[in-house]
Simulated scan of single mutants.
Amino acid sequence: MVVDDHPMWRDAVERDLQAAGLEVVGVAANGQEALARFPAARPNVVVLDLQIPAPNGVEVTAEIVRQDPSVRVLILSASGEQSDVLDAVKAGATGYLVKSASREELLTAVRRVSQGDTVFTPGLAGLVLGEYRRLSDGPEKTDDGTPQLTERETEVLKMVAKGMSYKQIAERLVLSHRTVQNHVQNTLRKLQLHNRVQLTRYAIEQGLDADDD
């Protein structure tokens, strides 16, 4: 399902997906249309712009994930702002691309997200990883009840930030695909539990490239 309020962009994405052999089961121009059409369309993946007429992309993400936890949301936005990326992840998005991405990057991201991978534009992955690291390593990690990350979760997420697929990570670490997926989902859940004000402040301080590898 493709959701974007710009007809030319929406049509182009739909054509690219169909040309690649993917079935587009629905399109929408705003949040209201998206929520109205989602139950009947039952898409596996929703390619969603954030800046759409109300409800916005973050609110749509939260609602459709609530309705169907198995759905995969890939944000395709002109914005690479820290707050937008983190809000989308906290709402349940498992992918985030900026609109400067190429056609091939979009198609690859849709396929990977549909398989359960978490996909970010590289610089944005560093931002999210930076917050995971702070949760894992920060001295105040136990003061506010924030769940800590395990060493393995941190290791997996470093690889996610580098753009590696779950399959590649599983092979590198000699783990099953399901185990890798569970590590990432557990960490996303932990991030959602964190105080948003502290999260946003830290993200702004760190910038987008928090990965020091």
Rank of each mutant, 00 (worst) to 15 (best):
V119K: 08
Y166W: 00
V180G: 10
T108A: 14
N182H: 10
K190R: 15
L106V: 11
R196H: 14
V89E: 00
K167M: 09
V160I: 14
H194L: 06
S102Q: 10
T118Y: 02
L107C: 07
E153G: 10
L149I: 05
K90C: 06
R111K: 14
S136E: 08
A203M: 12
L129C: 02
T118L: 06
K167H: 09
D144N: 09
A170E: 09
E131W: 03
N186T: 05
T121M: 06
I204H: 13
V85C: 04
L129Q: 04
V89G: 01
T187F: 11
T154M: 15
S83M: 00
A101T: 09
V110W: 10
K162M: 12
Y96L: 07
G123V: 03
R152S: 13
V156Q: 12
V119T: 08
Q206C: 09
L157N: 15
A203D: 13
S114L: 03
V156W: 12
R189P: 00
N182P: 01
A210S: 14
L188I: 09
R172V: 10
K167E: 14
G138W: 09
S100V: 12
L124W: 03
R152L: 15
Y202I: 08
L193F: 05
H177E: 11
P147V: 08
L188N: 12
T154N: 10
Q185W: 04
T118K: 01
V128S: 01
S102M: 08
V89Q: 00
G207V: 10
L193R: 14
V184I: 15
G207Q: 12
G163H: 10
L208V: 07
V184P: 02
V197K: 15
V160S: 08
